[in-house]
């Protein structure tokens, strides 16, 4: 099954999420209260590793394991990155989770986060419904 590999990458990623404690509401509070370097260290390291990886992939024109070219689209600026970004930031500190950690919190046994996830899906749906009427 060709999607099995994504389950495997997700599994390793999920273990790293929990063991680094970035799915912890406490770690998110520390980050935004500026009392611990932990989250900055995790995100900073991930970004540096990502920048080097993308640079090497482009520099050596690496292909996928199936020989397909690797292409990364540019992100276009949209006012949503400011307004939506602020709204998400508020929700991030409240729930202690961005979308990935929501799934990891549920997997770790915090079943009530299923409600938070459902609400996030509803938030996405409401955004989609009013997409064209919002400031872009």
């Amino acid at each position: 099954m060709k999607n099995l590999k994504y389950i495997l990458v997700g599994t390793v990623f999920g273990i790293a999420f929990v063991k680094t404690e970035i799915i912890s509401w406490f770690r998110i509070q520390e980050m935004f209260q500026l009392t611990s370097f932990h989250m900055y260290g995790v995100i900073g390291t991930a970004v540096v590793v990502g920048i080097i990886s993308v640079f090497l992939i482009k520099r050596f024109k690496l292909k996928t394991i199936n020989g397909e070219a690797i292409t990364i689209e540019d992100k276009k600026f949209d006012k949503g990155q400011i307004i939506g970004g602020l709204l998400f930031g508020i929700g991030w500190a409240i729930t202690g989770a961005c979308p990935g950690p929501l799934f990891a919190q549920i997997g770790s046994g915090f079943t009530v986060v299923g409600v938070t996830l459902f609400s996030a899906i509803m938030g996405t749906w409401v955004y989609g419904k009013f997409d064209q009427r919002l400031l872009h």
């Binding site: 998400f88 609400s119 899906i121």
Partner: peptide
Amino acid sequence: LLMVVGGFLVGFGTRYAGGCTS
């Protein structure tokens, strides 16, 4: 407020911003 409204803001905000932390 913490679970339902917070979750809604995460879902609405990330889609409006076109992406999240990842």
